[in-house]
Structure formats: structure tokens, C-alpha cells
């Protein structure tokens, strides 16, 4: 077990920012920590990294307790804090050297580690510039490079792609995936496609509590109530939406039918199927039987976005 969080609670006054959460991250896993702003992601990460102390409960990183063996915990973690704070007046190489020194990288190995990080994070063209002169994308790479300088087993990344443009996001995600091959990564985000794109598993946190935990597929199926089909047929004389609706309802596996749009030339229906039933074939046959011209048939599955929305909105 790489990260093991047990009954962690953080209380600010009467408000519980993190409320008795427990979870594990296995070695070599990339886990996405997902939740709306203010759900407790940053607080949890800050407790694990030792920036904050928990009110109750504990966590272990690589077997080291965050209270008892703080220095060992910090040595095993590479941490990229939220908003990626950097010394803007230092140049990239000096900064990486400083980070390596503070992480107790052996003096003889420092130049080698810096070269490796510069290569891995694509910093060679900017390595002599002051960090203050760099674009946001490069700063993020510097942040990742300093976090990995001591080759930690565990990476904790707090919103590593926030504020980047779409191309930079793809670059950083690729970098994280590459890093994740050999390291345990816990990354937080409120961007859902990020979890689908980079993570093996997602933890969804809301109001300080973990409300879901599983792979993206598991979460989708777990929260998949029913499947919707959107059906568009050409409008014909003498056929009212109500007639089609009643006819559709006679199909046994159909739970509900709604007419969503009545246009001049076509009619659109939203058909809800019972769980785990694929209605597409039946819909096609239905149209053939009734001699309706099928214009569009579209299936919509529960997306991670829906799961997220459902889990985090109901309590707010």
C-alpha cells in the first residue's frame, strides 16, 4: 500500500473540511481525486504532505506515519501544491538544484538528476531563464520537475493542469501518465475528462466525505440508472405524437416515452429503457413495422459527468 488514509478529519471551527475519510492508493496506481471546489481535496493532500495537521485520524505513506515519521513521509513524496508556487526570481537550474538539496539528494548525483528532469520535462530550451519569465505551461513543468527531483515513490499533484491551455493540458497529462508508470500518483482535479484520460481510479469527494470510489467504468455502471435513446422520425400525415408514444409504450422493455420536440417535419422522442437493455434494434424494427422514416437514433449513457453531478449536487 502506497498511501493509506485512515479516518482522517480536519475541523476548522465547527466546519469539517474533511470528515472521517479513509482510502487506499496502491503502488503504481494513478488515482484521481475528484470533487467540486471546497470539497476538501486540497486539505486532504495538505495533511498527507505535512503542511497541515489533521484534527483526527492518520495516514501512512509508504508505510511511514504522517505524525510519527514526518521526515520519512516528506522524503517519499513529490508534491506539487495548488497554484504551483515557485521562486520567480530564480532561474530554472538553480531552482532545481535548491529543490534537490532540500530533498537531500546526494551532492554528486544532483547534476545528473537535474539533467534527467530537464530532459524528461522538456525544459532544455528555458533552463537558463528566470522562472518569472516562463509561460504557465513551462512553470507547470518546472513544478513537476522539482517534485520529481529526488525520484520519490509517491507523487501528490494538486490540480496539475489548472489554468493551462488545451495543448499544454495534453502535454502535462502525457507527462503524468509517463511518470505514473513507475510511481504512485494521487492527483486532484475538478475537470472530469482529466480523470478519464489519466487515472486508473477515481475518488469522488463532496463536503469532506468520499462519496464514490472506483474505476471510471465501475462508477459509470454503478450509477447508471437507465439508458436513454433519442429517436427522431419524419412527421407523416395522420400520425400524431401521442399515437407513436402509445405504440412505443407497448414494447415491454420500454419504461417511459416522452415527446421532446414537435417540429414541422419531424418528431423527437426520448425513450427510457429498463436497466441494461439495449433498445436500438427494437427501435429500428419498430420504425420498419410502422413504416416510419427513421432520421436519427442516438443512445446516451451515463457519463462520469452525470455521476459526478449526481453525487456532489444533491447535498448542496
Amino acid at each position: 500500500m502506497s498511501i493509506n488514509v485512515q479516518n482522517l478529519t480536519k475541523q476548522y471551527g465547527t466546519k469539517k473540511a474533511v470528515d472521517d475519510i479513509s482510502f487506499d492508493v496502491h503502488s503504481g496506481e494513478i488515482v484521481g481525486f475528484l470533487g467540486p471546489n471546497g470539497a476538501g481535496k486540497t486539505t486532504t493532500m495538505r495533511i498527507i504532505t505535512g503542511f497541515l495537521a489533521s484534527t483526527n485520524g492518520t495516514a501512512k505513506v509508504e508505510g511511514f506515519d504522517i505524525h510519527e515519521q514526518q521526515m520519512d513521509v516528506r522524503k517519499s513524496i513529490g508534491y506539487l501544491p495548488e497554484h504551483n508556487p515557485l521562486y520567480l526570481d530564480m532561474n530554472v537550474l538553480d531552482y532545481l538544484e535548491f529543490a534537490a538539496q532540500l530533498q537531500h539528494v546526494e551532492k554528486g548525483k544532483i547534476p545528473h538528476r537535474i539533467r534527467e528532469m530537464v530532459g524528461m520535462c522538456g525544459l532544455s530550451s528555458v533552463k537558463h531563464l528566470d522562472i518569472g519569465q516562463l509561460s504557465k505551461g513551462y512553470r507547470q513543468r518546472v513544478g513537476l520537475a522539482q517534485a520529481m527531483i529526488h525520484d520519490p515513490k509517491v507523487m501528490i499533484l494538486d490540480e496539475p493542469t489548472s489554468g493551462l491551455d488545451p495543448n499544454q493540458i495534453v502535454e502535462i497529462r502525457n507527462l503524468i501518465r509517463q511518470v505514473g508508470k513507475s510511481k504512485t500518483v494521487l492527483l486532484s482535479t475538478h475537470i472530469l475528462p482529466e480523470v478519464e484520460a489519466t487515472c486508473d481510479r477515481a475518488l469522488i469527494i463532496s463536503n469532506g466525505k468520499i462519496v464514490a470510489n472506483g474505476t471510471t467504468k465501475e462508477l459509470q455502471s454503478q450509477f447508471q440508472g437507465s439508458e436513454h435513446l433519442y429517436l427522431e422520425v419524419e412527421r407523416e400525415d395522420g400520425v400524431t405524437p401521442e399515437i407513436i408514444r402509445m405504440q412505443l409504450k407497448t414494447i415491454p422493455t420500454v419504461e417511459n416515452v416522452e415527446c421532446t420536440h414537435e417540429l414541422d417535419s419531424s418528431l423527437m422522442f426520448k425513450v427510457t429503457a429498463a436497466k441494461d437493455v439495449d433498445l436500438r434494434k427494437q427501435m429500428f424494427q419498430f420504425c420498419v413495422q410502422k413504416n416510419l422514416s427513421l432520421l436519427e437514433l442516438r443512445r446516451e449513457q451515463t457519463s462520469l459527468e452525470d455521476v459526478f453531478h449526481e453525487l456532489t449536487m444533491e447535498k448542496n
Binding site: P81, P85, L102, Q146
Partner: peptide, 13 residues
């Protein structure tokens, strides 16, 4: 203010 304190104190120091 710059948040770099968080970087410092989460290092083994």
C-alpha cells in the same frame, strides 16, 4: 504570500 512556504515546509526540513 507566494505560497512557496508550502513548498519549503513539505520538504524534509
Amino acid at each position: 504570500k507566494g505560497g512557496t512556504l508550502e513548498l519549503l515546509v513539505t520538504k524534509p526540513i
